[in-house]
Simulated scan of single mutants.
Amino acid sequence: MENTHTESLVSRLATIRDRVEAGMDRREFLRTLLTGGYALGVAQFLGVDDFLAAGDGEVPIVTALVRSDPDDPWSLEERIRYVPAAWYAAVEKAFELNELLARTALTGYLGSAVVPGSYTSETASVSVGISSGLGSFRETFDGLFEGVSLDVETIIDIEDIDDEHEGFEPRFVDSVSSADIPSGVACETPRSIATLGPVLYDPNTREEFFVTAEHAFEDEADSNGDRLSLPVEGSETVELGPVERAHPIEDIVAVTPADRYRPSNTIDTPTPTRIRGQFTRLGLADLIARDEELEKVGAVTGHTTGAIQGIDAVTCFTDEFCRRGQIRWGGEMDLTDGDSGSVSYHADPDGEEGDVLVAGFNNARTWWPGQSYVWGVGAYELTETYGYYF
């Protein structure tokens, strides 16, 4: 009986949400809640306060998780923005279609990504990469979700890697006079050079980790022996700590700090840059809708900026498994060997000068003809999967 009641409630909530997306006005929303006998707890679940604060034709979305106190890493708060309901409906449908594509995985499917339109267009699209089977994709999925277009492209020759980056030297830290090690500088594994990411927080254990790309280690990072080091300009390499956790699919490793050094939420840039939090999936959609760009600081190519080309992407180009929750941004010249482990970020519009919010991790770039972007796991995906956040 309890399960039946729960299923009925979920169904009714879904109906309410559909009507909210379609632009239900405030009075109709309250009348529906009252006549439907919804309790206060359910109203809070629906976000009534935020919904009623929006204008007609708008809905609230959570765009970021931000620390209210920069010195307290556990003081996360949600950042709210009001957006057109029709745009929100289109983007949510695009997320659903993208998930359906990934689950179905027809022959030739190499990946896909959601591309929200502008707020004035109130549209969204899903970009799909395939190696074959263009007709079947069109027949099966095109027009499945009203207001969402399907952009299918055939990709060939993805096996041939052509690295055009030459002449770059990795940036090492000048000194380690401070115990706090900034991100955006070179770090070293037993196999190669990578870029050190900013401090990664685990709220479940209250631990803080150094972080970099998992593929920088030989074969697969080993928590039983692999260690991360920091090359210092004109000095000896210092040890940062041992690998504590390895996540090959997301392509990250969490490294426990050694006694002497600890990770920092600052990025090694000419002007002070401090990470204040991170974007949600809808927060990234909001950035695309407003035509905002992302930035990164890599140990080899340094500071670059670029447009966001897709979010919630599924990437099946390189391994036997698919990577989910990816971000596509910038161009292939924005990343090279040694930059993996850096983060993409954007200025915090409501923060202090120099405050930024992390979008995601940079793991690789395209090398096949016809497409050009950097890709890596979104910060929101790490939070949803493991609880981590920046």
Score class of each variant (00 low, 15 high):
G378D: 10
P369M: 11
R328Q: 11
G378K: 05
G338P: 01
L382W: 08
Y345P: 02
S340I: 02
R328C: 04
F361H: 15
G331F: 04
W368D: 13
G354V: 07
V377A: 14
D334E: 12
T318Y: 13
Q371W: 13
G325L: 03
Y380N: 15
D312K: 07
Q309A: 12
S342C: 08
E320C: 10
Q309F: 04
N363D: 12
V356P: 00
G331R: 09
H346Q: 09
S344N: 12
V343H: 02
T305K: 12
A379W: 05
I308Y: 02
I308H: 02
V314T: 14
A379R: 11
Y380A: 15
E353P: 05
M333I: 10
M333F: 07
D312G: 09
G325H: 01
G302W: 07
G302P: 10
V314K: 01
V374G: 08
R324S: 09
T366F: 08
G302A: 11
W367H: 15
V374T: 14
T318P: 03
S340T: 03
A347M: 05
G376L: 12
V377N: 11
G341E: 00
G378F: 03
D355E: 15
R323G: 06
R328I: 02
F317M: 12
G360F: 03
E332C: 07
V356R: 01
W368L: 13
R324I: 06
N363Q: 13
G360T: 09
V377D: 05
P349V: 07
G306K: 04
G310W: 00
N363E: 13
G354T: 08
T366W: 07
W368F: 15
G378I: 04
E332V: 08
G325A: 07
G351L: 04
G370V: 13
A359T: 04
P369W: 08
L357I: 06
I311H: 06
A359Y: 00
L357K: 00
L357H: 01
G378L: 09
G354W: 03
R365E: 13
G306E: 06
E352M: 11
G370I: 12
V343N: 00
V358R: 01
D334G: 04
H346C: 04
F361T: 12
C322V: 01
A359K: 01
